[in-house]
Measured scan of single mutants.
Amino acid sequence: RTAFSSEQLARLKREFNENRYLTERRRQQLSSELGLNEAQIKIWFQNKRA
């Protein structure tokens, strides 16, 4: 289980509010910017949509 920092969570929530689905390219960008792997971001979005 991933423990996200408050900064990472704030960024993910802001991104989710703008778009509930990420393109592969956007997921790669977020992964690089947040220091998370793409799978972690993908799962976070899946869980948030559920």
Rank of each mutant, 00 (worst) to 15 (best):
Q28N: 07
S32Y: 12
R14A: 14
F45E: 02
E18T: 08
R1Y: 09
L9D: 05
N47S: 10
I43Y: 10
N17Q: 12
K13G: 09
N19L: 04
N37M: 08
Q8H: 04
N19D: 09
K13P: 00
W44E: 01
L9S: 04
F45V: 01
T23K: 04
E15P: 00
A10G: 06
T2R: 10
R14E: 13
I41M: 02
A10Q: 10
F4Q: 02
A10H: 07
Q29C: 06
L36I: 10
K13D: 15
R49F: 09
Q29M: 10
T23L: 02
Q29S: 08
F45Q: 01
S5M: 03
A39T: 11
I43N: 12
F45C: 02
L30K: 00
K13S: 13
Q29G: 04
R25I: 12
T23M: 02
A3M: 12
R25M: 12
Q8G: 01
S6Q: 13
R25V: 13
Q46Y: 10
W44A: 02
G35A: 06
F16K: 01
E7Q: 08
N19C: 14
K13A: 14
N37A: 13
G35Q: 07
L36A: 04
L34T: 08
G35Y: 04
F16L: 03
G35E: 05
I41T: 02
L36K: 01
Q40E: 13
N37P: 15
I43G: 09
Q28T: 08
L34Y: 02
R49M: 13
K42P: 01
E15R: 02
E38N: 04
A10L: 09
L36N: 00
F45Y: 05
N17W: 08
S6R: 09
Q46C: 10
N17L: 09
K42H: 14
F45G: 00
I41H: 00
N19T: 05
T23N: 08
S31T: 05
E33Y: 03
Q8P: 01
K48C: 12
R1N: 14
K48V: 08
I41S: 01
Q8F: 02
G35N: 08
Q8K: 03
Q28V: 09
K42N: 13
Q46P: 03
K13C: 15
S31H: 02
S5N: 10
R20K: 12
R11M: 06
Q8A: 06
N47D: 09
L12T: 00
T2S: 11
L12G: 00
K42A: 15
A10S: 08
K48T: 13
A10E: 14
L22H: 01
E18D: 08
R1I: 12
S5H: 04
A39F: 12
G35F: 04
Y21W: 11
E33I: 06
Y21F: 12
E15L: 04
I43V: 08
N47Q: 13
E15T: 02
E38F: 04
S5C: 04
A50M: 12
S6G: 08
L9E: 13
L36M: 06
R49T: 10
R1T: 14
N37L: 12
K42I: 14
K13L: 15
R1D: 15
N47M: 13
N17P: 01
L22C: 05
Q46L: 08
S31Y: 03
K48H: 12
R26L: 07
L34R: 00
N47E: 13
Q29I: 11
R1F: 11
E7R: 04
I41Q: 00
W44I: 03
A50Y: 08
L9M: 07
R11A: 12
F45L: 03
S31N: 01
E18F: 07
F16A: 02
Q46M: 09
K13H: 15
N37K: 08
F16N: 00
K42D: 15
L34M: 07
Q8C: 05
A3E: 14
Q8N: 03
R11F: 05
S32H: 13
S32W: 12
Q40H: 08
R25D: 13
N17F: 09
S31G: 06
S32I: 14
E15G: 02
L12C: 03
A39I: 14
Q46F: 09
R26S: 05
L9P: 00
F16P: 00
Q40G: 03
L30S: 00
E24N: 11
E18N: 09
K13V: 15
F4H: 03
E33A: 05
K42S: 14
Q46E: 14
E38Q: 06
Q40D: 15
E24D: 13
Q46T: 08
A50H: 10
L36S: 02
L30D: 00
S31I: 05
A3Q: 13
L22E: 04
A50I: 10
A10M: 07
L9C: 12
R25E: 15
G35M: 06
L34F: 03
E15I: 04
E18L: 09
R1W: 08
K13E: 15
R1P: 14
L22Y: 01
N19W: 05
R27F: 11
R26G: 05
R11P: 00
L34K: 01
E7G: 05
F16Q: 02
Q40F: 11
I43M: 11
N37H: 12
L36G: 00
Q29T: 09
E18A: 08
R25S: 13
R27W: 10
N19Y: 05
N47V: 11
F4P: 05
E7N: 06
E33F: 03
F16S: 02
